[in-house]
Design a protein around this nucleic acid. Structure first.
Lengths: 339, 339
DNA sequence: TTGTACGCGTTATCAA
DNA sequence: TTGATAACGCGTACAA
């Protein structure tokens, strides 16, 4: 609990000025090598570390970036995305001496206020924007606030706004093609909220893939990524006069709930119904039968997003980011169409 | 993108001194009501907001608290705890103008460095400590650093170190009692790592509950909370010459993986094997059969932890926190012992 | 290399 | 009682 030494203490102990110490610590030219080394030695000896508060004030930067998650806690709970994504962000941020500031707010309205406050108080140098809605007002707000931002997810609309994300499309398409290859023709889709970009984009990819396979679109049910709605959507689909022989779900959670609904009704999977998910959550490999799903490298995604934002904040050109395309992982939940 | 007005701008516009403005904004006595109101009106008109960097430097506080999660990304991914917990923390922190600073590190060693750095750079005013190990060195380090800290989880050993957590014991005990009531006598346990406090405490609770029911302890398998190890532990238990008729798992993820292993082998649940989990994850209600599990109010837990830490940071007496005890949720995965 | 102003809000001191 | 003045926190940047 001894007070940490300041740059002034180092200067006094080394018999030089504050300015000289600052130069030495930041490796800037204009100091005799000998002086520089003496200063560094003294600093080390005293155990000096920079005070981020003072630094932040003097350079008008906070060395922190923000992530606001606007979801009700219930849907946040089961989401496999954020923990991995945050781990990816962190791996880059901590290397660069940046901190990640997290906010969780229950709804969109709060989210706008959160961003505004983060910006006005100067708490962060930039932010990540997730769960983009179609017609989302955040990009406009952030532009107005002049806060650097990176959108997480497939960019819709504004092409010049920096977005980092893997395109869901090929993943969903691969699932559909896999099912078509197994002889399925009535392939349904259970989507996330189509008011959200990644809900809509997966739905679009399903439509397109069906069209390209020369098939009619097949039954569709909108849900909200939750197990609850995944289950009820599945019930609706199975109750149809002519039920689908395969269902492509927009995430694993809904797919696993759907799998249980089918099993519970005595509908054999994959004998009478094939099922695919999206995310490749840990449990997907361990349900019975194993869930065929789409795997994305969320950790890399986080890394790329962090690099992009730091580049933006520093006014650097970002290194071009190459993200692995989504990959279909085939397991036991898909099989030949029933004849 | 106009530069935000400073307190000096407000002072100039109101025709008073910087100090007077500060007094007005912080509602401190020593100003004529009329002057105060004039200053506040001007501040509002200019759209002044405090600059958190300057504030932090001048009061030697960062108005941020830290949470370091030391887990490999894979196990973080499926954890239902953190998202809810963080939502709970945030609900309190944001009210008080505190920010949550998040770090994710791959292992314990990094974690110590993280805490040291957060403290030395003055980035945070306090921290939460999670995933406590038995013989954890972090409490000592944090005490040495003089950084206020709240331990998340049942307090082991040091009784005076502030810890906030629901006691797992009664939840696990309730599960065992429920099974005993159904006539089970060979009740196994699949634990988390017993090197971790919440792995050990759930295991202890199981032992104790068996003893109190007058039963021998039953087979035990240590795992790591992951689906993978939950599945393999289950296989080991089912392969025993005299397999258990019920298994109490330390979390839902392992329980659901175990459920699938049993189903896959044609072992009827709950006909021949009863299964219980811990966490009441969203999917637990939607697997087939529904998982009997223990529910804890993680959101409240987060709230309580945040209140405790803020009290500690401010030197206030914390409001006594009353957390809901864990609650057993009975679903279809438990039934009468086979005769 | 040194000295010093600067960033911006807080707080102690002191004069009216 | 009211309010001005100045010192403070600490690292950075620029003129001398």
């Amino acid at each position: 609990m001894t007070p940490r030494p300041t740059i002034n203490d180092v200067a006094r102990a080394a018999g030089v000025s504050k300015g000289a110490v600052s130069f030495a610590l930041n490796n800037r030219p204009g100091l005799a090598t000998e002086t520089r080394e003496r200063i560094l030695a003294v600093a080390r000896e005293l155990g000096w570390t920079p005070n981020s508060r003072a630094r932040a004030l003097s350079v008008s930067r906070s060395f922190a970036v923000g992530l606001v998650m606007a979801r009700p806690p219930e849907t946040l709970r089961a989401d496999p995305f954020f923990p991995s994504f945050i781990a990816g962000l962190e791996s880059v941020l901590s290397e660069s001496g940046y901190a990640l500031l997290l906010q969780v707010v229950p709804e969109h309205d709060h989210e706008l206020r959160s961003y505004r406050r983060l910006a006005e108080e100067g708490r962060v140098d930039g932010v990540f924007v997730t769960d983009l809605h179609v017609d989302d007002t955040r990009p406009a707000l952030l532009a107005e606030l002049g806060l650097p931002a990176v959108i997480i997810g497939p960019a819709l609309g504004e092409p010049f706004w920096p977005a980092v994300g893997v395109d869901d499309g090929p993943g969903v398409a691969a699932a559909v093609e896999h099912l078509v290859g197994l002889g399925h023709t009535r392939i349904a889709h259970v989507s996330g909220p189509t008011a959200m970009v990644h809900g809509q984009s997966r739905r679009d990819a399903w439509s397109r893939a069906m069209r390209e396979a020369g098939l009619p679109e097949g039954p569709f049910a909108e849900a909200d990524f939750s197990a609850e709605e995944g289950a009820s959507a599945t019930r609706r689909l199975l109750d149809l006069p002519e039920p689908p022989t395969a269902i492509v779900y927009a995430n694993d959670l809904m797919a696993m709930a759907g799998l249980s609904v089918a099993t519970g009704r005595g509908v054999d999977v994959p004998g009478r119904l094939s099922i695919t998910g999206f995310d490749d959550t840990e449990l997907a490999a361990h349900v019975q039968p194993g869930l065929t799903t789409v795997s994305t490298n969320v950790l890399d995604w986080g890394r790329a997003a962090a690099e992009r934002l730091l580049a933006l904040v520093d006014g650097r050109d970002p290194a071009p980011t190459e993200l692995d395309p989504p990959r279909l992982v085939v397991r036991g939940s898909t099989g030949p169409a029933p004849s």
